[in-house]
């Protein structure tokens, strides 16, 4: 059995676990813990502390694993371990929380430093009324025109599929160079 992996990263509460959950054929193996910090608790009750783990079986011979990283900075020691040997990565950004854009940018740079693999940025929660416009997010995140910034709704399977496909297209394009 051959295996490949992709990493889903991004700031705290960007929607990484939900993203994997939407396409994984198994229930996501989540390492969530109740949140202790009051300010973070106001956003959600539990968070990933080690990793999330989802699986998509391609055929008898090939399996794609999806790893979600913990979003909180104090667990960033896990990032490099998860980045090892990845096919590519997705940076999830919560379009409704501009205060996390700077951190998303830092995470993106950090993962680029681990491995120069292809990546895409997913502007999550685009279905929310206070979501930032994707073009505005491109400016705020300081992403070049060549970087794929994709509108996304992590609860919507089709939307998640589109993000994964765009990453795979980028991987193919990179292989042609």
């Amino acid at each position: 059995m051959q295996t490949v992996k992709m990493v889903v990263t991004g700031p705290f509460s960007a929607g990484k676990t939900q993203f994997i959950q939407s396409v994984s054929e198994i229930d996501v193996v989540a390492t969530e813990r109740k949140i202790s910090k009051a300010d973070e608790k106001a956003i959600k009750n539990a968070t990933t502390v080690a990793m999330d783990f989802g699986r998509i079986t391609v055929d008898d011979d090939l399996v794609l694993y999806l790893f979600g990283t913990p979003g909180q900075k104090r667990f960033d020691f896990m990032w490099e371990i998860l980045a090892e040997g990845m096919l590519g990565f997705i940076v999830m950004v919560d379009s409704t929380r501009p205060e996390t854009f700077r951190e998303a940018r830092t995470i993106l740079e950090t993962f680029r430093a681990y491995a120069p693999t292809p990546y895409v940025v997913a502007a999550n929660k685009q279905d929310m009324p206070d979501a930032w416009d994707v073009d505005d997010m491109r400016v705020a995140l300081r992403l070049g025109q060549n970087t794929k910034l994709l509108p996304c709704v992590a609860t919507d399977k089709e939307s998640v599929k589109q993000v994964l496909l765009e990453l795979l297209y980028s991987i193919l394009e990179e292989m042609e160079r």
Binding site: V4, D59, K161, L165, L168, I171, L172, M175
Partner: peptide
């Protein structure tokens, strides 16, 4: 391999 992944994701 990447094309197999693409086909699989499309079929989800």
């Amino acid at each position: 391999l990447v094309n197999r992944l693409i086909d699989r994701i499309r079929s989800l």
